[in-house]
Amino acid sequence: MRNQRIISSTFLYLLSIIALVAFIFPFVLLIINSFKSNGEILTSPFALPEKLDFSQFIEVYNLMNFGVTFTNSFIVTTLSTFFIVFFSAMAAYHLVRRPSKFNKFFFTVLVASMVIPFQSLMIPLIYIYGAKLQLIDAIPIPLLIIFYLGFGSALSVFMFHGFIKAIPIEVEEAAKIDGCSTLQTFFLIVFPMLKPIAVTISILNVLWIWNDYLLPSLVLNHPDVYTMPVQMKVFNGTYMNNWELLIPAILLTVIPILVMYIIGQRSIINGVMQGSIK
């Protein structure tokens, strides 16, 4: 019996280490090749680099216009996420506490909209805001943020809705009796209680928006407003198969989000787990 347990736990360890290698080796491969020249990459991609040469990183940093690109991604991601969380929490609160006919209908529409593929919306979206209203060339970044507010609202309202339903109404009633307006009640009493689910929703939105490619590629047509994925695509087009530049570029693109993950890994994993339960 004891032997059997040792064998089975050894087997589990073995399996999990194999999986670990499978999940990590692409990143290791990227890191070791980022210091190499093209010749070295071609002949021995699995060997350690002969020397630690950071010059390609500096070159790529300039070629990608990294400062501007990173700032664009940062602005779009943080502003979109902030407003999605803020507006969705307010909307969900209203939908839960005022279940009028219209509100119930609107909530159903929001939830049902989650099965609409982005591909079914992108052509009219570009047609309306590009060809007709000419906003895509005029205000690309604010427009992109507005699009994210729209596309992000369904899931976020749905998740807040589930959470708020479980909050007892008595606290709010007490606040009302003490003379709080609806707005005050929401911001002073309810919003602080939403913190756990707000963290989850923020994480999911940050991961999605930071990495999104198709929508920004349709909206951002000028190098000054590129976000990281769009820049990466253009960079790959210019330096096709030039791995000594492409690999540092890939690393520069993923490092910001990996740093965020290393700092907040526990809350990210817990956040995703919370989000899946309801």
Partner: peptide, 19 residues
Amino acid sequence: FLGPTLLFFSMTVLLPFAY
């Protein structure tokens, strides 16, 4: 409370879907 979400959702999902 509902206005901002209603507005942005209509602008990016409802209107483009109908159009």
